[in-house]
Simulated assay, not measured.
Amino acid sequence: MAMALPSVPMSARRRRIRSKMDVPLLIPLAMGALEFLLLRIPPSPAPPPSPLRHRRRAAAAAAADAGILFREKLLYLEHELGVDPSRALALNPSLRSAPISSLRSAASLLLAFGLLPSDASRVFSQHPHLLTSDPSLSLLPSLRFLLGPVAIPFPHLRSAVLRCPRLLASSVPLQLHPTLLFLRRVGFVGPRRITAHTALLLVSSVERTLIPKLDFLRSLGLSDRDTNKLVLRSPSILTFSVDRNLRPKAEFLTQQMGRDAVELKAFPQYFSFSLEGRIKPRHRMLKESGLAMPLSEMLKVSDGEFRVRLVDMRLRKFDEYWEDNS
């Protein structure tokens, strides 16, 4: 006998069938609700830039700006100051980082004291460290010293600087002032005071340059007074080298020419003439002719005039010989 299955109430069966029918309808509704919710959710913020990347970009921008400024500096040095940038940078590496305003300040100060742009070019080409030095601590004290204690007239200041740009690169308390005091003791005062033509002596070292040269002149038999008079009459002697100029010429004067060093008192400019180019050739011509003349007459005249005088002296000597033997 077959076993009877339990019966399911009709209301429950209808609910089960309805729920199976509603599933396909609920899926689209759920998807739409999800999209709606996604639209309502704000987007996530972008991640902050990497600090390393930011620093790299900033460094690249700074490098580009620095390159532009450096090129501008090179153009200013070459075209406006007339300074060779390569040489200036080699002698003064600080120029690479110095602002162009410091270069302009140094140049403007020289122009304010009467120098021309071409003069500034000469000064900075020889002493490029002045371009990066504080002008109020480097250039200005030297310029004021030349105008003040040295008493070089303002119109002559440019001439003094052009003859010796090193004047503007020398320390006033350590170099210029001590040397000025020494030169005044030698006799460079009053009518013989330091001028634009002799201001270059101020850059000489008293101990290493000036005193050894004065000592050498005294070793020739000159007194202190005569030595001082000699350099006052011919200040350029103090710029000559003892070994390359003074000693060879003094030895030739006394040993080869047979003259006394006392003659230098009358003609101290002897040391200014070339030993090989003028002194030796003219002494040889006089010696070959058996003649002699004072140092000043022997050296100051041109070659043509010297030959004319030499011919005149030969004729006079011949006339004297003829008269004595007639």
Rank of each mutant, 00 (worst) to 15 (best):
R185H: 14
A112F: 13
T179E: 09
L180V: 13
S138K: 06
S170T: 12
L168K: 08
R87V: 10
H177R: 15
L111R: 15
L181R: 15
I100H: 03
S102V: 08
S133D: 13
S118L: 14
S108R: 15
F124C: 01
N92E: 15
L130M: 04
R184L: 05
I100C: 10
R87C: 01
R185E: 15
T132R: 01
S105G: 04
P178T: 11
L143S: 10
L162P: 05
F124P: 00
A106K: 03
S118T: 15
L157H: 09
A160W: 02
S105E: 15
P128N: 06
S138D: 06
P135S: 03
P85Q: 07
P141D: 01
P165M: 00
I100F: 02
L137I: 04
P128W: 00
S102H: 08
P128H: 03
S118Q: 14
P149N: 00
A88K: 02
P93R: 04
L147I: 05
F154L: 15
S121N: 10
V186M: 09
P128C: 05
L180T: 13
L162H: 06
D134C: 13
R163L: 14
L89N: 01
L116W: 14
S159D: 14
P141L: 02
A151D: 14
S97Y: 06
A169L: 05
A88T: 01
F154N: 07
S125I: 04
L143Y: 08
P85W: 05
P85S: 06
H129I: 06
L131S: 03
L130W: 03
T132N: 02
H177L: 15
I152E: 04
L91T: 01
S94M: 07
L174N: 12
D84R: 04
F145T: 04
D84S: 10
V161E: 06
L168E: 08
I152T: 04
S170I: 11
L162E: 07
L157W: 08
V161H: 10
P155Y: 08
P135K: 01
D84T: 02
P178I: 11
L143P: 12
F182H: 15
P173E: 05
L162V: 14
L116Q: 15
V123G: 01
L110C: 10
L131C: 03
R122Y: 09
P93Q: 02
F182I: 13
L95R: 00
L183H: 07
V172A: 07
P117H: 06
R184I: 09
P165H: 00
L95E: 00
T179C: 15
I152K: 03
S86V: 13
V83Y: 02
S108W: 09
Q175R: 14
V172G: 08
V123N: 03
V186C: 12
S86H: 10
P93M: 05
L137C: 11
H127A: 07
L103G: 02
R87P: 00
S142F: 06
R87A: 11
Q175M: 13
L137T: 10
A160R: 05
F154I: 11
D119S: 11
S121Y: 04
L174S: 14
F154P: 09
S102L: 10
R122P: 01
S142H: 07
L139N: 05
R104Y: 04
A151W: 04
Q126P: 00
I152Y: 06
P149M: 00
F154V: 12
A106V: 06
S86W: 06
A160Q: 05
V186Y: 08
A90W: 03
I100T: 12
L111Y: 15
S105T: 13
S171D: 09
L168V: 07
S108L: 14
